[in-house]
Simulated assay, not measured.
Amino acid sequence: MSKNNMLIREIQQQDNPKIAAAIREVLLEFGVPKIGTTYADEALDIMTETYSGDRKKFFVIASGNNIYGGAGISQLDNYDGNVCELQKMYFKPEARGIGLGSEMMEKCLDFAKSTGFEKCYLETMPYMDNARKLYRKVGFTSIDEPMGDTGHYQCSVWMIKDL
């Protein structure tokens, strides 16, 4: 599949089951634990509803009726400060290595800036090397402990970026 066949757009109601399936597929591919990670999030099955409202947005990678991944921005849960979180950024193999990660990061971070967030936080797994390379490329730096309380206690890599 080529990048020319794929579009990054805001999530739509009919995308809910497709993005949930895509994210779970990627998590299983990487051997991510099912508990204490995005895999167990109730929000995964109702992404349109989860990302409705002010200062929240979720984007998907679509080609025709197929969804190949996505990412979202929302206020960091259980944190008192003007910090958003880059959430649920996972791509199926067909969407990797063709520049969509950089485009998705730009779209998400532009949205975060436009809504007035001062910093963007993320959590990931230590063995997701390509994701961490992308995060560092756009200016995320590692921090020593988690911020807020996302419920993702299995994630052991925490990063932050000034917006």
Rank of each mutant, 00 (worst) to 15 (best):
K3C: 13
N4K: 15
N4E: 15
N5H: 15
R9N: 14
E10P: 12
E10M: 13
Q14F: 15
D15C: 10
N16W: 12
N16K: 13
P17N: 06
P17W: 11
P17V: 07
P17I: 06
K18H: 14
I19L: 15
A20R: 12
A20P: 07
A20G: 13
A21D: 11
A21C: 11
R24S: 04
E25W: 06
L28T: 10
E29D: 14
E29W: 12
F30N: 06
F30S: 03
F30V: 05
K34V: 12
I35H: 05
G36Y: 04
T37W: 05
T38E: 08
T38I: 11
Y39F: 14
Y39V: 00
A40N: 07
A40L: 00
E42H: 07
A43D: 10
A43V: 04
A43R: 06
L44Y: 03
D45V: 04
D45G: 08
D45F: 05
I46Q: 13
T48M: 11
E49Y: 08
T50M: 04
S52A: 14
S52P: 01
S52D: 10
G53E: 10
G53C: 06
K57P: 02
F58S: 00
F59E: 00
I61K: 02
I61E: 00
A62L: 04
A62E: 12
A62K: 04
S63K: 05
N65V: 13
N65M: 13
I67R: 07
G69W: 03
G70I: 00
G72H: 01
I73D: 00
I73F: 07
I73M: 08
S74T: 09
Q75F: 04
Q75G: 07
L76K: 02
L76W: 01
L76G: 00
D77L: 12
D77K: 13
N78C: 07
Y79R: 01
Y79W: 12
Y79H: 10
D80H: 10
E85P: 01
E85F: 00
E85W: 02
Q87H: 03
F91K: 02
F91G: 02
F91I: 04
P93R: 11
P93H: 11
E94T: 12
A95Y: 00
R96L: 08
I98F: 11
I98E: 08
L100Q: 03
E103H: 12
M105Q: 03
M105K: 03
K107V: 15
C108F: 06
L109N: 07
L109G: 02
L109Y: 04
D110S: 15
D110Q: 12
F111V: 09
F111T: 08
K113I: 07
T115H: 09
T115S: 06
T115C: 14
G116K: 09
G116Q: 08
F117T: 00
E118P: 03
K119N: 07
C120N: 02
C120A: 14
Y121M: 06
Y121P: 02
L122R: 01
L122I: 09
E123A: 06
E123L: 06
T124P: 03
M125F: 11
M125D: 01
P126W: 11
P126K: 13
Y127I: 08
M128F: 09
M128I: 10
N130A: 14
N130L: 12
N130G: 07
A131T: 08
R132D: 07
K133V: 13
L134S: 08
Y135L: 13
Y135D: 04
K137G: 06
K137Q: 13
V138P: 05
V138D: 09
V138I: 13
V138E: 10
G139A: 11
G139P: 09
F140S: 06
T141E: 09
